[in-house]
Each structure stands twice: as C-alpha cells, then as structure tokens.
Amino acid sequence: MGTDGSSVRPSGASRRTHAGEESASPGAPRIVVMTMVRDESEMLPRWVDYYGRELGLGSLIVLDDNSVDGSTDDLPCTLYRLPPEPWKQRWAKTRARMVNGMAGALLACNDVVVFTDVDEFLVADPGKYAGLRDYLAHRSDVPIIAPLALEVMHHVGSEPPLDPCRPLLQQRRYVKFAPGMCKPLVKRVPVPWEPAFHAIHAPFAVDPDLLLLHLKWSDEPTLSRVAELRHRVREEEGRGSPRSFWAKRPDQLRRKLASWTSPAGESDPVPVLDVEEVGARAVVSKRANGTWRPRGNQTTALDKTPLRVLPERYRDAF
C-alpha cells in the first residue's frame, strides 16, 4: 500500500472478465445477489454493471415492482416481474417474506445469498481482496455478514452532477459513516431478515473489510427526482413510515445534504476515513424481540457523524 492510502489490487482466486462473467477457480463460492426496483432508470444500470462484473451476470436477480419507465426491459440478467395488487397492501412485510422465501430456496443450491437495494454497492477492500467473490471465499466460515456502511455524499459546491460515462467514485470524494445502515445483507444460512433488512434472527458482526457504499446522497439532481417519485408513491400507497425519507420532500432532502457536506467548503481539509476510528464492530445489539440489528437512526447519525474522504484505493471500484 502506498503512503497516500492507494494500493495495488492483489491477484486472487478469480478474475472478472470484460464481458461481465466470472472466471472462477474450482471451489469458489456460488453467489446470488438480488434487488427489487421500480422505475430506477439511473441506478439499475450501475447495479447490474457492478455486480455483473464482480460476480457474473448469471448471479443476478432483479425483482421488478411494476416499472413503467423501461428500465427493466432487456436486462442481461434474471428478471422476475411482480404482479400488481394486492400483494403491496403491506409492502414492507410482504417484500421481506418474498425475499426470505427466495433466499431460502436459493441457499439449497448456492453458498451465499445477498440482498441489496439498487443504490447499495458492496465493495471488498481492494488492498486485501481481488473482488467481492474473493472476499466471500475468505469468509466461508461466517454465516451472516454486515458491511461497514458509508453514505456517499455530493458536495454541490465543488462536484458537478454525475457523468454516467465516468466511474462514480472518481467523481465523489466525501462519505459519512452510517451505523444504522450496517445491515446483515450477506448470508449463508436460511435465517430470515426482518422488513427493511436492517435486522435478522441471528447474531452477526460488522466487517470493516467490506464496505456498503450507499448512493442515495451521491447526486443532488438524482436525489431530487427519486424523492419526488417516492413521495408520490407514499401518498398513493402508504409506503414508508412518517419518520422515513419517503415522507420527505425534495427540498427537505437537499437542505439535509447541504448541511452534512458543509465541512467540505471550509478551509481545513476533510480527513481521510479510517475504518477503525468509527468503531463499527460495536454497533450491533440484540433486541427484545430476539433479532439482531445495528443501532442508530439514519438521520440522527448523519447529523452527528463527521464528514470524511473515501480512501483513494476505493476510487476505481465502480
């Protein structure tokens, strides 16, 4: 590793090809990664491209919740189109029941099942692993894994809107630790997730060698468009709690983003993130209902956690 925090990606047990299919050595873990989307024309191509390069397009499953923007047409991976009503009447619980059922079935013939939202990207430390599959091969004895979660932030004063033709992390420098987002998204055992996937019915720990880079706040124009869509869906279908971001208007979210990134405009430089400084291993606790989950309200945590610069070695991840 260089003195600037950069590193050379090590050679591992597997190799990603330009076509997006994985050339893996015998004994490499069989992995499935799932997401559920609705009208995600900007984020879904990034999700498919990233996880397709990391794991192979045959490892991806997209559950389409009635998209109408054409974003799920002609996908190069497995697509399952969900019916309309009446399953969405209790959307969060029904989504969890559906994904848990699929994950349990998939684990009968795969080693690992992962579920992420379409704006969540799991990145193994490139200074230690050749990619996500290599990382999971080194964690064969861990039944449930939670990543160290970082919110990727758009500092509007110094960073232009995202260019979809350029690597995203070369256009965004700033992150915030989000303890409540250290979700147990990776599992080798058919233990059920709770709704929203923040909790699970088994103990787990946060592994700083695996980052979850959440892109919700990574581009102010996209943030506004998605917020408008979700606010409308909440009004029509009642999704999201009154305290969730689904209930916030675009102008409210833009003000939050500006307040969280304000240190980037000050004279003192923003420090580079040290994953050990955040104490991520201590954020998980057992709840009264017998589930395990990370502590911390998302909004409150982002109000309190300091702004940091993403280490240089991650900047070519996607």
Rank of each mutant, 00 (worst) to 15 (best):
F115R: 03
F245D: 09
L168F: 10
E22D: 14
E151A: 06
P76H: 02
P84V: 15
E194D: 11
L302V: 02
T299M: 08
M102P: 08
C165H: 15
V33I: 07
E276D: 12
M36Y: 12
G157D: 07
E277C: 11
R38M: 12
D268F: 03
V175E: 01
A196I: 12
P26F: 13
I145Y: 01
P306R: 07
N297T: 10
E159Y: 00
D74I: 07
G238F: 15
V233M: 13
P192S: 06
L302F: 00
E276T: 10
R38F: 07
Q89L: 10
I144N: 11
H214W: 06
D207K: 02
L79A: 10
R225P: 09
R232N: 14
E277N: 07
D119M: 05
G52W: 14
E266M: 06
E85G: 14
P160W: 00
W47E: 12
L310T: 01
V175G: 01
V142C: 05
S218L: 01
L213N: 04
K128R: 14
Y50C: 07
V206N: 02
S259Y: 02
P26I: 15
R225A: 08
R38W: 15
A178C: 08
S67Q: 06
A317T: 11
S244I: 00
A130Q: 02
D49C: 14
P86N: 12
E276W: 08
E194W: 09
V48I: 15
E235T: 09
A178F: 07
G157L: 11
W260I: 10
L107V: 02
T94N: 11
V142E: 08
R30V: 13
A146D: 13
A280C: 06
